[in-house]
Design a protein around this nucleic acid. Sequence first.
RNA 1: GCCUCGGUAGCUCAAUGGUAGAGCAGUUGACUCUUAAUCAAUUGGUUUCCGGUUCAAGUCCGGACCGGGGCACCA
Length: 632
Amino acid sequence: MPAHFASWFRPRFYALMTVAIFMEDTNSLIEQRKAKLAALRAKGIDPFQNKFTPTETCAEARGNYVEGREVSVAGRITAHRDMGKSMFIDVRDQSGRIQCYAQKNVLGDEPFVIFTHLDLADFVGVKGTLFTTKTGEISIKLSSFTILAKSLRPPPAKWHGLEDTEIRYRQRYLDLMANPDVKDVMLKRSAIIHEIRNFFHERKYVEVETPTMQGIPGGAAAQPFKTFHNALGCEFYLRIALELYHKRLLVGGIDKLFEIGKNFRNEGLSRRHNPEFTMLEAYCAFGDYATMMETVESLITTVAKKVLGTLVIEHPMKIRFKRELNNAIVKLKALHQKLTEDFGKSLTNSDVTTEAYLNFNSVFSASIRELELLSHLNNQTPLDQAIEQAKRSFVNCSVEGNTFRLSPGMEVSEKQVKGHTSEFLSFIEQALPQLESLKIEAGAIAPESLNKIIDLTPNWRRAKYNDLVKEKAGADWFTISADERRQHAHDMGAEIGKEFEDFEVTNAVFSKFIEPTLINPTFVTHLPKELVPLAKLSPDDPTTVEVFECCINGQEISPGYTEQNDPIAQRATLEHQAGGEQQKLDEDFLVALEHGMPPAGGIGIGIDRLCMMLLGQESIRDVILFPQLKPK
RNA sequence: GCCUCGGUAGCUCAAUGGUAGAGCAGUUGACUCUUAAUCAAUUGGUUUCCGGUUCAAGUCCGGACCGGGGCACCA
């Protein structure tokens, strides 16, 4: 063995490195790291240790500062500052970061050379004593170190974090490494679920687990995933809801129960939908929907207080809005130019106008939605005027399905738009300056002032479905004829299918124009019975059911029911539902009900959406560690 | 499934159709209290993939793949 490690290490090290690079030059950064690994092994050092037991975490070391106290910590190297004969590194574990100071004359020449060749992202265990640097940072003066795990790939980022959404979701570990905010959200999600469990345990609810694989998937109207059991030779479905098994447990005498588990629904993916999502369902015998309203309100405020320490939650709104706006302006200008040229040449050329229409349709649908939402938020921002102005032209000019409305009296279908080039042009000329001024004003505004504020302070608003509809669509909504309602809904800009029944027309207005505006918690009660066929009728108004929808942040967070315990009525509605033979009848469940189920209140809460609301995330993918993506 | 925006070095981003660049990371050298360390030098690219137009394509056109947003499906 050479007498001086330093002189041995370098030439041998680079000889190895060169060989490695010539062998495979796919990624030189990886090859360099592999060469360092080989060099360490050649020296008899195993950079993948089985165990290292630190005396404390990085945060504990910093928190319990006593000058000269001996400590050992372990973690990943996240930064290094090389000073020649001394060196600073940052070591980070889950608790946080601590700076370590290595000196050549303390460690010795050989170990110091090894130390300076450590890479970002390597795991090390260090021993040393606490001290404070000139600039006042608590640090560890190293007496020794052990390489615990060498990282063979470069870490993603130092300052900007990792931005590439695809890598963030597919390789979440990199996201967690690089973006502290992401880790914070995920840890808070864990805390939220912990507090939910605490809440129910304190109220003497029993936590249960029910089958994920079911022969007949029931409890919701959704497409299931199908799977196959080899030994039994039969098909199973992944559950779409927990409900039917929970009710069996009510029959069996478990009076207060809850489950937190995955549901699987075979649907498209979106900002609010992941194919597998976490659901909380809870049932309380001898309670009803009013009991459950109290439960939901108490649960969510308790969790918010414990995890966030506040009942007032801010959501940033600005980014998408500004980008959409800019996008729209650029697009509109190009459109205008193209149309003008075409219009000058030939009045009858329809293709360009039709194309323009289609472009307009897709570019603007998002902008219109955002404008609508912003104007609903009610909190006065300097943008209000500009939004109102721009809205006036947009609300008059809206796009639904295949119909494009230039002004209140004038509607043009996609096929007819060809004849209206001049109207289209003048609309653009009118809209452009408004958008421009909106953009200027939006640019001048601090992003925070556009934040959406959700106030969870009790007592939460309780409102009847019909009252909310009347508030938005006119006090005479339920006294005018069904045809008038249909026309009115259409005028408001709702999409009304030809086959829609009357209650569906009203509900289209509700889900498009009312639900998105319910930012602060609101229990919507007394839903029309047609809308929720499986629920029990309200004794005080038999046209409605004892159901609530708890809306927060413009989304339904939790539905709650007085559960149906009349086996005959339940069978009738289920048979009616199954009439389209889409889902088979769960005979076993119906038999269970016939044995008698106590009156009960029940709720479901989508945990992912609850986390979005509490943690200020606009996408469900940002509250799920590994969201579903298309396989590469 | 449909519409739309995007994919450039390990990371974050540039590049009127005309030699693919910067900062950081990496490597080398200097420096024993730095913390986005500093200073000097330097490596690194099948511009996601396939095809087309052109004397010339990261850029224009067509297609595929993946992602974001919107819609549809779905409470």
